[in-house]
Every structure is written in structure tokens, then in C-alpha cells.
């Protein structure tokens, strides 16, 4: 077990952690915008599955990875729009409609897969791109600058999200709608437009998150392949206190610990630590860190539908 602290292992953990964090980042950053505008979308997992399937099918049929990614984003957009309609216009209880969306995506992705592909054959996904110069730095280069394009995109999204949320008028409107929709409305901000925008964006990101699995990380599709990633992504939004940086730290913590526990399993030859306990680590630590970390208040209007007529 002393090898755990060797350079190879530590680099390995960091590299895998970053890779593993990618789908969580896409999904959780998208969900964060939805929640900042006041809508919880528990259906992220279902949208991810549809994104994963769409991307895989398109990549199989056309061989064009970017087109496949675009299609996954488009499916995400459609499901995001549906979710917007359900929560904004129909003012449905969001926790429940999200579960419906999850079931729908889970079933439909599997159904379409059985119907149109039947069996699965690995595609050649996005290959790692070594960033010139930076990629040659020992250790650092290996950890940070030798990933596929979707990993870079996911992390590039973080500063963009910070900027949009804190430095633009749109960000101001989003925050206002999530905290005091009545006030935002009286100032001429369309609450429903902003919510539609944010929830749909969340859908697009969930679609891309799913695509990142089939196009870059796994290169295959299987029924229910997300296996809870979407729900963890929702949890990470709470973990991150509704800020892009917080969400990113959460995704990294969760993924790094997951990478760490896999290494512990590899190195722990005599299985002193049962694999089950190793597997609990990311979940337990996420709870523990949040319990002893600082907390931010959730957007005041979260999960509360806004009915213009009643104000």
C-alpha cells in the first residue's frame, strides 16, 4: 500500500480524477444554471442517457463525432425545453416531473438502442490531444494537458459560467429570477424566458454530458449506462453552493476520491479493505466535506413556480 504515494500512482489518480469529472461537470454546471433560475431538474440522468444514445448512434452511422455531439446537444435541448414547459407553464412539482423525465429517458434510450442498433460495437472516440509545450511538462503535462477535447471543453466551461453568472446582465437576471421572481418581473425581466433559457441550457449540457461518455470516455453504449451520474450531478450543485467554482470542486473531489479508491483496490492485494468500503468513500467524503464546510443559501425561489397572474 506504500506505493499509493508514489508519483506514478498520484499522477494516475489525478489524471483519472479529471477524466471522471468530465460528465459530472457538464451535467452539474448545466443544472446549476437551471437551479439558479429557480428550477430543479431531477431528470438530468434521463437526458444524459438520451444524449449518450444519440451520440453513439450518430457516431456509428455517420462516423462524424462532432455531428454526433451536436445531435446529442440537440436532443438535450428538446428535453430541456420539455422540462421548461412542464415546470414553467404547467407549474408541475419539479422533484416529481424530473423523476418522470428520468424514467422517460431511461426507457426511451434503451428502447431506441434495442430497436435501431441491437448490439453494440465500440466506436473510435475523441482521441487525447497533447497540448504543445504544456503537455511536455513532466507530471503536470501528463495530468492536465493530455486529455481529449471534451475534457478541455468541460473545464473551459467553468470560467465562462463564472463570467456569465457574475459579470453579465444575463447573469444578473438569472440570479434575480432565482431569488425574487416578483421583483425581477416588476423590473421587466421575463421570468419564464429566463427559466426556459436556463433549463434548456441545462438540458443541452446534460445531453453533452451523456455524449462525453459514449464519444470520449467509454466509446460504447449500454442501457442505463449512466448508473446514477445524473443524480450525483444534481447533488453536486447543492454541494457547490450554486457557484460554478464550488460545483467544479465538488465534481473534482468526488471523482478524485473515486479514482483513489480504485487505486486502493488495485494496490490492496490482500483485500484488507473490502472493495465495498472503498466504493463508499466518494459518497461518504462528499457528505463529510459538506457537513464541515461552509454553506451558502439556496436560491430563495428554488422549486417554486412563478405565476404572474397571482402577483
Amino acid at each position: 500500500m506504500s506505493e499509493l504515494f508514489s508519483l506514478t500512482v498520484l499522477t494516475g489518480i489525478a489524471y483519472s480524477g479529471i477524466r471522471l469529472a468530465t460528465p459530472y461537470l457538464f451535467a452539474a454546471l448545466g443544472e446549476m444554471f437551471a437551479q439558479r433560475s429557480g428550477v430543479v431538474n431531477l431528470g438530468v440522468e434521463g437526458i444524459m442517457l438520451m444524449g449518450a444514445f444519440t451520440a453513439f448512434a450518430m457516431a456509428t452511422w455517420t462516423g462524424n463525432l462532432w455531428f454526433a455531439l451536436f445531435c446529442a446537444a440537440f436532443i438535450g435541448l428538446l428535453m430541456g425545453l420539455a422540462m421548461s414547459f412542464i415546470s414553467v407553464n404547467m407549474q408541475a412539482e419539479q422533484g416529481i416531473s424530473g423523476i418522470g423525465m428520468h424514467l422517460f429517458g431511461l426507457g426511451l434510450s434503451s428502447l431506441l438502442f434495442t430497436k435501431f442498433l441491437g448490439s453494440t460495437k465500440a466506436i473510435t472516440g475523441f482521441q487525447p490531444i497533447k497540448i504543445p509545450l504544456l503537455g511536455d511538462i513532466p507530471v503536470i503535462g501528463e495530468i492536465f494537458f493530455n486529455h481529449n477535447i471534451l475534457v478541455y471543453l468541460a473545464f473551459l466551461l467553468v470560467p465562462i459560467a463564472v463570467w456569465v453568472l457574475n459579470k453579465t446582465t444575463l447573469g444578473l437576471k438569472i440570479r434575480a429570477v432565482g431569488v425574487k421572481p416578483e421583483a425581477a418581473d416588476s423590473l421587466g425581466v421575463s421570468v419564464s424566458k429566463i427559466r426556459y433559457l436556463c433549463v434548456s441550457f441545462g438540458g443541452v449540457m446534460a445531453g453533452i454530458a451523456g455524449a462525453s461518455l459514449t464519444l470520449a470516455l467509454i466509446n460504447l453504449f449500454q442501457e442505463n449506462m449512466t448508473s446514477g451520474i445524473g443524480f450525483i450531478a444534481v447533488a453536486l450543485v447543492y454541494f457547490g453552493g450554486w457557484t460554478p467554482v464550488g460545483v467544479t470542486l465538488g465534481a473534482l473531489l468526488f471523482s478524485l476520491v473515486n479514482a483513489l479508491q480504485l487505486w486502493i483496490q488495485v494496490l490492496d492485494k490482500d483485500k484488507v479493505i473490502p472493495s465495498d468500503f472503498a466504493l463508499m468513500m466518494p459518497y461518504v467524503l462528499t457528505i463529510a466535506v459538506l457537513a464541515f464546510g461552509k454553506r451558502t443559501n439556496q436560491p430563495a425561489a428554488l422549486t417554486k413556480p412563478f405565476d404572474r397572474g397571482s402577483h
Partner: peptide, 28 residues
Amino acid sequence: PASLIQVLLGLVVIFVVSSDIWVRRRAS
């Protein structure tokens, strides 16, 4: 395929929670 059932249940859940708005409209 068994997955059709999940699709159906998903739709049922979505439609039932969405339909709730008519109850609230009438109530108000």
C-alpha cells in the same frame, strides 16, 4: 421491449404532475 414500460411510466408521471395545474386553477 421491457424498456417501453419505463417510457410509459415516465409519460404517466409527467402528465399526471402536469395536469395538477387545472386543479390549482380551479381552486384559485
